[in-house]
Amino acid sequence: MATLNPYLSFKDQARAALEHYQAVLGGELDITAYGDMPMGTPEDEAHLVMHGQLETPDGLTLMAADTGSMTEHVPATSGVTVALTGGVDDFDRVRAAYERLLEGATDVMPFEKAPWGDHYGQLTDRFGISWMFDVGPA
């Protein structure tokens, strides 16, 4: 089965972001740095993330990488970058993720019951990534 996974691009904060998301969502984090590969990376950028992947206990996959000076960095655009959604059984998990991402967040829309019946909220986390949270009713 094919899956769609967010792949986030950072200039030089992928490791910190992925470690933060692991603290928020749980799971196993695998990081490969540019310096781990035999490709002539500048020494001061060897620690940057070439590929990072977070696999959460409930099946979510979140990936990220740094661009450093090797390629042009394209920052996240306005709008939703990551959507964390679910049904009524997922309410506590989605609400907990929202609350843990609030520290340092901007453009916060509270996670609360929306006019259409879902619990909905949005924020831009401390790394500049925009998140949407939605849990449908029973």
Rank of each mutant, 00 (worst) to 15 (best):
L4V: 15
Q13M: 09
L54V: 08
V135D: 03
P57N: 04
T41G: 03
L101E: 08
D118Q: 07
R100E: 11
Q122Y: 07
L54G: 04
P6A: 04
T61E: 09
A33G: 07
T71F: 15
M109N: 09
D30V: 15
P38T: 04
H20T: 15
M70K: 06
H20N: 13
T77W: 03
D92M: 09
G121P: 03
T41N: 02
Q22I: 06
A46S: 14
A65E: 06
D118A: 13
I31T: 02
H47P: 08
T32A: 10
A16F: 09
R126L: 05
L48V: 05
W131E: 03
Q13R: 11
H51G: 05
G104C: 10
H73E: 00
V74H: 02
G87E: 11
L54N: 02
G136C: 09
M1A: 11
D107E: 10
M63H: 13
V82A: 08
T106D: 08
E28Y: 02
M109P: 06
E28D: 12
E19A: 14
T71M: 15
P115I: 05
W131N: 01
E43R: 09
M109C: 09
A17P: 06
D92V: 10
A16M: 14
G87F: 08
K113A: 13
E103K: 09
K113M: 12
T81E: 12
D92T: 12
A105I: 05
V108S: 07
T3M: 11
A97H: 07
M39H: 04
P115F: 07
N5I: 14
D12G: 04
T56H: 00
A105W: 04
W131L: 08
D118G: 06
V74T: 09
F133H: 02
Y34A: 05
T81D: 11
Q53C: 13
A96M: 13
L60W: 06
E103G: 08
T85W: 14
P115S: 10
R93N: 08
W116R: 02
A96Y: 12
L123Q: 00
T124L: 12
A65D: 11
Y98L: 13
L54D: 02
L18W: 08
S69R: 07
L25N: 00
R93V: 08
H73R: 01
Y120N: 07
N5Q: 12
A97W: 03
F91S: 12
A14E: 12
Q122T: 15
T71D: 10
A97L: 07
G35P: 04
